[in-house]
Simulated scan of single mutants.
Amino acid sequence: MSRVARSVRYRLRRCQVAVWALALRALSRYGRKRLVSPAGPVVSLTSHGSRLRRCHITIESIGRGDSRPSRLLLWIDDPEVLESLPPALIRLQRRGLEVRLTSNYGPHTKYYPFVSSTENLDTPLVTADDDVIYPPRWLTDLVEASQRMPASVIAYRARRIVVDLDGSLAPYDAWPFSAEPGPSFLNFGTGHSGVLYPAAMQRALRARGEGFVPVCPRADDVWLHNTALREGVRVSLVRRRSVAFDTLSGTQRGALKHSNVAAGANDEQIRRTYSDADLGRLEAAAQEEEAAAQEGPAS
């Protein structure tokens, strides 16, 4: 595809996303349907600053889905904001959104306040970003994939960890987006499109506490994958390859990807988080999967 064709396609897609956002904004203003339903998983996200004025669009996209969460939690770290929420969030509260105050754990805020404060962690936990428009089957497909692979972390999008010949990890920016459905220790789930965590993972995260603070305070994906690796929990994709859902315009200026990926901050946080034993597990997984691929499908 030519550069001009790509540019036209991108502009058309952004126009389509803008139309979807307008429709969701109207639904958020005039909708009356409950956002939650008893049988669903818990969905948790966080927002802050200027994003709080737009995150109702993301929340509405979750609540209008074919399946709804049993709880829909929005974590914020500013008491003054909690006392004067935007009108759109107040309307969503009437329909089942829970807005909770927490300490500031950076990107870890989307999951850690829940696992550290909830007595019963038997219900699957799904994390979401506050700047994404999630499609109607988003939660349905996550849950169905989890039912097929109940021991796995389930992700829509993952990087494929690259282990070099000497057993070290290639730079994060060299890890391609995965097209290996898994389950696999080499699938490194990324939170953008949504990730489901089974009960065992939630309990492990609670047990590790705030250990992420000194090693990867700005890289929740690193801590989450490292915890899964140590617990023997593999990551599976919802689909046969990774997928990234559309983001709202104007929300990416301060996104973590600019520092964590482009500036290499993920590599430093990975070095601090993964022990020699962790690297050994990843090297063994890479060798095992390479051997299985060379053998081909069983006859």
Rank of each mutant, 00 (worst) to 15 (best):
Ala5Arg: 15
Leu12Val: 10
Val19Ile: 13
Arg25Tyr: 07
Leu27Lys: 12
Arg29Trp: 15
Gly31Cys: 10
Lys33Trp: 07
Lys33Glu: 12
Arg34Asn: 12
Leu35Phe: 05
Gly40Ser: 05
Thr46Ala: 08
Ser50Leu: 08
Leu52Trp: 07
Ile57Tyr: 01
Glu60Arg: 04
Ser67Gly: 00
Arg71Met: 04
Leu74Ala: 05
Asp78Phe: 06
Arg91Ile: 03
Gln93Phe: 02
Arg95Lys: 11
Val99Ala: 05
Lys110Gln: 03
Asp122Gln: 14
Asp122Thr: 11
Thr123Cys: 12
Pro124Ser: 06
Ala128His: 05
Tyr134Gln: 01
Pro135Asp: 01
Ser146Cys: 04
Val153Phe: 02
Ile154Asn: 03
Ile154Leu: 10
Ser168Leu: 06
Pro183Asn: 07
Gly189Pro: 11
Ser193Gly: 03
Gly194Met: 03
Pro198Val: 03
Gln202Asn: 05
Glu210Asn: 06
Phe212Ile: 00
Arg218Trp: 09
Arg218Tyr: 10
Ala219Ile: 00
Asp220Ile: 00
Asp221Arg: 12
Leu224Gly: 01
Thr227Met: 07
Ala228Cys: 14
Glu231Pro: 02
Val233Ala: 02
Ser236Asn: 03
Ser236Gly: 10
Ser236Ala: 15
Asp246Trp: 08
Ala255Asn: 15
His258Lys: 14
Asp267Ser: 07
Ala277Lys: 13
Asp278Phe: 11
Ala285Asp: 05
Glu290Ala: 15
Ala291Tyr: 05
Ala292Gln: 15
